[in-house]
Design a protein around this nucleic acid. Structure first.
Lengths: 336, 336
DNA sequence: AACGTTGGTTACAACGTTGTAGAAACCTGA
DNA sequence: TCAGGTTTCTACAACGTTGTAACCAACGTT
């Protein structure tokens, strides 16, 4: 039931190559020949075999997007934008879920598709520059905020500035005992380090002392971790009047734990997040957050990959900074 | 920098086919030959060209998962499970975002990959049995609850029973004016129809009259639609004492709108959802919901596809019912 | 000593497509 | 009419892999 160029050619009474030419929109084909071929194609419901085409052309038309977890809203939203941006280039996106572990990420980075994909957009948590160096030649764009400058293109936002800005917003509400949730000491915690730096910078600017006890680690950045961190903070006796969570899911967990503790948000404790995921627009209370331009990030990444594929593979790695903006909602409103 | 079997063969001093045999784990290769080949493979960092292999074997090792939207939590969670289940079969999953429109879905169903994938797991909203009939021979498993029996395998849960059960739970809390949110009259609204039927059945069983005014349509099933539906309900003067939302995102929007209206949940209005997404475990209040066994659904779908690919392509379409369970949380607790 | 069997390896063709080179047919203008 | 070009089409080889068939050597059997 599956037909080949040859079948179409026989039915239309032309050579295989002429059918190929019609399929590929080659100019110099007589209108009546083209019509005959097109009719044969329609009658047989012919579809090109992409494996064969790829083999011949060396290109697959597929790019991969590797993210730690698909059901973390931030990555899901990002994935949607990447798929959309890739479609503009005629690419299909193969989405790969790494799980975030170093070993799995290495495997994803090196193993993905083997000739099956033309390029890779990678949002690594644990990967080091060394790991990436091993991937000879696979065009790649990294998303997120690794500190060390790897050998690949890179799209990110200014984490330090964004964290500083939203912390300053909390300070502007009159808060002084501001907790930070989501710190990580592991090498994977690059984002955490940068956001913590921004938090500290804002405190310093305002002349507020940095209190170690207000900084809560979170092994992962899920809702449960945010809730656990707040519960722990509250048991230690430090009473924060604001919480800056390093992402929105942590913040949603924090809202939950504060609610369970009978604390009002934002009256007793103001809460701010990071990422601007959809949930934060409907939570109770709605979430103040840093809103990275996800659509812009996706487009930049795809376009960057496109220029690599278009030829300048040898060009030095580039770093692009995507814009962000502060979104003030109920959990830390514009005026106190 | 990319090597072929031939390069490995030359370096190891054997034929191309012998290298192929080693790569594919063929038994009858002398240990020392195997060792020489494996060393050459390692030295050259050889990786098979999947396009060529696919062309030769007619199989790609890739299956596609087509969902309406990636950033709807239910689909994201489902996608994660499908990826995991597929990995057990050694498959890569190509995730496709259809957008949910009939035209796009048709295109996704027919166009996806063309020889690029071995099979398809499809969660359609708008597709009819006729559309699917056109996909000659592509092994396919459908997810979700279309009423009409198409030509493909099918995995679903018993929507009517689940909806009836959770509505009965609301009735058990003493509620009598129970609103239903998410009804759809379009042909795509198969899930909506089934869940509405379950809702109506529970009312009938309890001897409660079906009140048209309590049934609110929702064009899509996003948070915003749930919020809008509740706002509209409240302006019409009907005062529900419970709301059954046809999925969890609608319910989260409903929670938000009730909160804005100053109504307490569950004291004034109990709320129930459907899908058991992660958000509902941390919302304020936490969400009572129907929890379909997503992992089971994913595994069933992948296994079903596996048996199709293993040979019995001609077997009649099968329908599998996955289990679900009721989860009672704060928005509609176990005892009133 | 001749025989079949098995283990280990190889040459060759084929999967379906497209680039290359060139043939055949058709134009143009002198 | 013909040289020179352009249009239209075709035959062939190649992309990298694996299935088939066949080969050679070593073995045990008759």
């Amino acid at each position: 039931m599956r037909h080949r160029l040859k079948d179409v050619a026989e039915r239309a009474g032309v050579s295989v190559k002429t059918v190929s030419n019609v399929v590929n929109g080659y100019e110099h084909v007589r209108p009546d020949t083209r019509a005959r071929v097109e009719q044969a194609i329609a009658e047989l419901n012919y579809r090109p075999n992409l494996s064969a085409r790829n083999l011949r052309k060396g290109r697959t038309g597929v790019i991969a997007l590797a993210v730690p977890e698909l059901d973390i809203p931030y990555f899901a939203e990002l994935a949607r934008h990447v798929v959309t941006a890739a479609a503009a280039h005629g690419w299909t996106v193969l989405i790969d879920q790494t799980g975030g572990g170093p070993e799995q990420e290495r495997k994803a980075a090196s193993g993905i598709g083997d000739h099956m994909i033309d390029g890779l957009i990678f949002s690594p948590l644990a990967l080091t520059a060394d790991d990436l160096a091993g991937l000879d030649g696979m065009p790649m764009v990294l998303l997120g905020e690794r500190v060390d400058h790897g050998p690949a293109d890179h799209v990110m936002i200014d984490n330090v500035a964004a964290a500083r800005e939203i912390t300053a917003h909390l300070i502007g509400l009159g808060r002084r005992r501001i907790a930070a949730i989501g710190s990580q000491r592991t090498p994977e915690g690059a984002s955490a380090r940068l956001r913590l730096a921004g938090y500290a910078a804002a405190l310093a600017e305002a002349g507020i002392g940095y209190d170690e006890r207000l900084v809560a680690p979170a092994p992962a950045w899920h809702r449960a971790d945010g809730a656990a961190a707040v519960r722990h903070l509250l048991t230690t006796g430090v009473r924060p009047d604001a919480v800056f969570c390093f992402n929105d899911t942590l913040a949603l967990g924090a809202l939950r734990a504060l609610h369970e503790a009978g604390l009002r948000v934002p009256e007793d404790v103001a809460v701010a997040g990071f990422d601007d995921i959809e949930d934060g627009r409907f939570s109770i209370p709605t979430l103040s957050t840093v809103s990275p331009d996800k659509e812009g990030i996706a487009r930049l990444a795809v376009d960057l990959l496109a220029t690599r594929l278009a030829g300048d593979a040898g060009a030095p790695p580039r770093e692009l900074i995507a814009p962000y903006r502060l979104v003030r909602r109920e959990s830390a409103p514009a005026h106190s």
